[in-house]
Amino acid sequence: MHPAIQGLLTIAFGVGGCVGYFYLSNIILDTLIFPARGKEIARNIRRANMVRPWLFLFPALLALGLYLAYPVVETIRLSLTERLPGGGSQFVGLANYKQMLGEPKFWEALQNNFLWLLVVPAASTAFGLLAAQLTDRLAWGNIAKSLIFMPMAISFVGAAVIWKLVYDARPPGTEQIGVLNAIYIWLGGIEPQQWLTIPFWNNFFLMMVLVWIQTGFAMVILSAALRGIPEETVEAAIVDGAGPFQIFFRIKVPQIIGTIVVVWTTITIVVLKVFDIVFAMTNGQWQTQVLANYMYDKLFVARDWGVGSASAMMIMLLVLPILVWNVYNARREMR
């Protein structure tokens, strides 16, 4: 069957199935199980209303349970087992973790991940805040914002190609077609640099790609927050003789600090999962490995599910504090 037809059929089945499920289950509940008539009408309606939320929730809970909750548990289990050659598996305790901790590539990935965690959220938030503040009262600010926001729609792979062109190097003496090398030569550099192969610094060239993408996100959120600042606080500061920088750092930033934290943590999550950029640009060579790519290597190249799952748990462990913090905030807000 042609995939396009299969796709259309799936849409029809999926949408039809969902609508049919919700519609029919409601009818069955209201007319067959707890009919709203007869002697027990009040009790039946009450009962039906107790069951109905679960009818509405059932498909979502099923999908969430199967595709997100179960894998977490299963990954924990897999990280503690070893696949046996003839099929089946064997409990090995923490051996996978031990093996992982013994690999230099893992430490390199962890170290780089921490570097990413330090640099990318900070740089994206700072650039985003700068862009939000600068464009705030400009007549054409919205166009400027929209252009800075644009990389958000570009895939990590597309961005990788875009930036590989920026970092491109041609042999010495020939015309440079990568803009970075062209500037480098113009400034008096002699040897064109293979930017992505210079250990340690190449991490920053990869990070730049993510900063470029995430700045727009930070800018949009922070710009809305800046708009939400009460005018009076700014006016009062002006009356008191505050300069623009004082107003920005002493009046505006403290009032949106909550939003800054949200932006920071959201980008942190993105950083922890970053895979495509490294996979497409260096694939972890020249000491640019990160955890997500290390995990992919282990799972699908080395086919070592035990160590792969252990490194996935490592990512989960790093995400966990933010997860707890988000849940805590969401609960506090609901009260």
Binding site: T75, K273, W305
Partner: peptide
């Protein structure tokens, strides 16, 4: 925020 990396193998 659960990383989808966890879901791949299972």
């Amino acid at each position: 925020v659960v990383p989808l990396q966890l879901a791949l193998i299972p």
